[in-house]
C-alpha cells in the first residue's frame, strides 16, 4: 500500500452545550465507516475549533450543537476559518437547528445539515460524495 488515504473528520462541540451523545454516536459511526475521527470534547470556542482544524488538517468538520446558539457560534467558526484561508474543508452541522435557520447558515458555507432522526449512512454517503480535495 503506497497510498494510504484516509478521510479525516473532526467532530466538534462548540459553546456551552453538555449534550454529546449524538456527536459520540456519529464519531463511532464514521470510525466504523473507515474514517479517522478526532473528537474535540465539549465546550469548544470557535477559535479552539479552528486551531484544531489547523493542526489536524481534516477533510471534514462536523459541528454539533443543541444549545440554540448556532446562529451565534457557527458564523464565528466560519469567519475564523476564512481568516486563516481554510476553504478546502467540508463543514457540516448537526444537532438541533430549526429549518428556518438553515438557509442563512448555508450561505456562510456550511453544507450538510443532519438533525435528529438522520440516518448515519446518509451522513457517511454525504461526506464521501462532497469532499473538497
Amino acid at each position: 500500500m503506497l497510498q494510504d488515504r484516509k478521510i479525516r473528520v473532526i467532530v466538534a462541540k462548540p459553546g456551552l452545550d453538555g449534550h454529546d451523545r449524538g456527536a459520540k454516536v456519529l464519531a463511532r459511526a464514521l470510525r466504523d465507516a473507515g474514517m479517522e475521527v478526532i473528537y474535540t470534547g465539549l465546550h469548544q470556542t470557535p477559535a479552539q475549533i479552528v486551531e484544531t482544524v489547523v493542526q489536524e488538517d481534516p477533510d471534514v468538520l462536523c459541528l454539533s450543537i443543541l444549545s440554540g446558539a448556532h446562529n451565534e457560534l457557527f458564523p464565528r467558526v466560519m469567519t475564523v476559518l476564512k481568516e486563516k484561508g481554510i476553504d478546502d474543508v467540508l463543514v457540516m452541522a448537526g444537532g438541533v437547528i430549526p429549518d428556518d435557520d438553515i438557509e442563512g447558515l448555508r450561505r456562510l458555507g456550511i453544507e450538510g445539515f443532519y438533525g435528529p432522526g438522520s440516518k448515519l449512512q446518509d451522513i457517511i454517503d454525504y461526506i464521501k460524495s462532497h469532499l473538497k480535495r
Binding site: 484516509k6 464519531a27 463511532r28 464514521l30 470510525r31 466504523d32 465507516a33 473507515g34 474514517m35 479517522e36 475521527v37 478526532i38 473528537y39 474535540t40 470534547g41 465546550h43 469548544q44 479552539q48 484544531t52
Partner: peptide, 14 residues
C-alpha cells in the same frame, strides 16, 4: 475491522 479510528487524546488537551 473497519480501518477507521477514534482519536480522542485531544479531549484531555483543551
Amino acid at each position: 475491522f473497519s480501518g477507521g479510528a477514534l482519536l480522542g487524546d485531544r479531549i484531555r488537551m483543551k
